[in-house]
Amino acid sequence: MREEGDAELVANDVRLVGRLSAAPAVVELPSGDTLMTFRISVERSARAGSPAARGSAQRVDSVPCTAWASRLRRSVATWRVGDIVEVEGAVRCRFYQAGGATRSRVEVEATSGRLMRRSPAA
């Protein structure tokens, strides 16, 4: 139960800066809603105490992201694999039906995003 003043202590705010690792894809849901999915590869922090600092072999995380707002979807559609991008949003756990089973997916629901550096032309 939330107490007075808790809003200052809890937050679900995410900021990622990384490389677009796959081309953005348009997904149309059974409800008729449209969203854009994409993945950003981000290097793990080497801060003291983090797995990367303790010698973990994994140095990069591939983070699934979604864009629901039409303006953001149009922007993301122009991004190319290898571009350095910045995304802000929140972590979401989404539940859906597939193959007769309920499944879940954790992703970053982007509320804003921008191209920081274009990848060299292929």
Score class of each variant (00 low, 15 high):
Arg54Ala: 15
Thr102Gly: 13
Arg44Glu: 03
Met116Gly: 09
Gly99Trp: 11
Glu88Ser: 14
Gly99Asp: 11
Glu88Asn: 06
Val87Met: 08
Ala98His: 14
Thr66Glu: 05
Ala22Glu: 03
Ser21Trp: 01
Met116Ala: 12
Glu28Pro: 00
Glu86Asp: 08
Glu28Gly: 01
Gly49Ala: 10
Val76Ser: 07
Glu28Asn: 00
Arg92His: 13
Trp79Ala: 08
Thr111Met: 04
Ala90Trp: 09
Thr37Pro: 01
Tyr96Leu: 02
Ile84His: 07
Val17Leu: 08
Val85Gly: 07
Val91Ala: 14
Thr37His: 01
Arg80Asn: 11
Gly99Gln: 12
Pro64Met: 08
Pro24Glu: 00
Val60Ala: 04
Arg39Ile: 00
Ala53Asn: 08
Pro30Arg: 03
Ser119Leu: 02
Phe95His: 15
Glu88Leu: 06
Val81Ala: 09
Arg39Lys: 03
Arg94Thr: 11
Arg94Val: 13
Asp33Ala: 15
Leu115Ser: 10
Ala53Gly: 08
Val81Leu: 07
Ser112Glu: 14
Val42Gly: 01
Arg47Gln: 12
Val63Gly: 09
Val63His: 08
Ala90Gly: 07
Glu86Tyr: 14
Gln97Asn: 10
Ala110Pro: 05
Arg44Asn: 12
Gln58Ser: 14
Glu43Asp: 14
Gly55Trp: 09
Thr37Phe: 00
Arg92Gln: 12
Val85Cys: 10
Ile40Arg: 02
Arg71Pro: 02
Ala67Pro: 09
Ala48Asn: 02
Val26Asp: 01
Ser45Lys: 04
Ser112Thr: 15
Leu35His: 01
Arg59Trp: 12
Arg73Gln: 09
Ser104Val: 05
